[in-house]
Amino acid sequence: MQIYLPIAEISVNIFLLLGLGLGVGFLSGMFGVGGGFLMTPLLIFIGVPPAVAVSTGANQIVASSMSGVFPHWRRKTLDIKMGLLLLIGGSAGSIAGVQLFALLRGLGQIDLIISLSYVGFLGVVGGLMMVESVRSILRAANPEKAGSKRPLRRRGWISRLPFKMRFPTSGLYISVLPPLAIGLFVGTLVAIMGVAGGFIMVPAMIYMLRMPTSVVVGTSLFQILFVTALTTFLQAAQNQTVDILLALLLTVGGVIGAQFGARAGRNVKAEELRALLAALVLAVCLKMGWDLVVTPSDLFVILPRGAGEGF
């Protein structure tokens, strides 16, 4: 059954979209990630214009992070003060990112920047995650060799920054600058890559801010919810690239898939799960990198040129 998407202006099989939501939702539930880094490239692959894929991806993440944030809210595993700081940085990043997006689209280079960002970030994050998880798997296999646990390093230069603030929920007393900077960086990624940025924010909160792991995921979801909401609004208002029908269809599949994924994830060891996720991230990275290098089937691209926006 075909459905015509009003903003993407293409006709797509409705079961393909539901299946896509289900599949990506399953993986995101299993690995505890947003799944935007899978969804956006897949949407582009099935023919959704990149600009619409990125903006609609952000809209879909609003729904998934909304459903994810409630349990953390109830269990109080959520540092609202830290979340708000990340959100301030994230909002600025999102506003800048939407402008940058429009500018690059006008230059005809947005596809290249999206691809390069994916290859760069997924390569680095996937590579680090793979190394770390393989090490923990090996350590678990021969426990006698892994006796020396590394001492927790001091925060170093981060602890010397000014404008310190107390964060009771996380038990931290640190400068407000690093959370703002992390938020800014991730907010820009939301606008340009259509990803939630959890895969960058969670490690940054654990390793740079040294937040307790228990509050990291909830705080990350809290920040993602509002930054993606702002991004959706800005992309819709400025670029008219949010397809509500597409977003809702993906959401329906996504929330159901996430439930099954979360259940499936409980039967797999944490470090093996991380290795699998790393493999998935690296696979997407390699695919996008390959597409940049391999000779395209048509050496010309036809880009629409609209009033002022280049869309």
Binding site: Q60, F233, A247, V252
Partner: peptide, 21 residues
């Protein structure tokens, strides 16, 4: 009405997420 539409998209997504929850 792009701004209103953007707001609508955000609210619909939040509602969907809330219902899923």
């Amino acid at each position: 009405l792009p701004a209103l539409y953007g707001l609508f998209c955000v609210l619909m997504a939040m509602l969907a997420g809330y219902l899923a929850n």
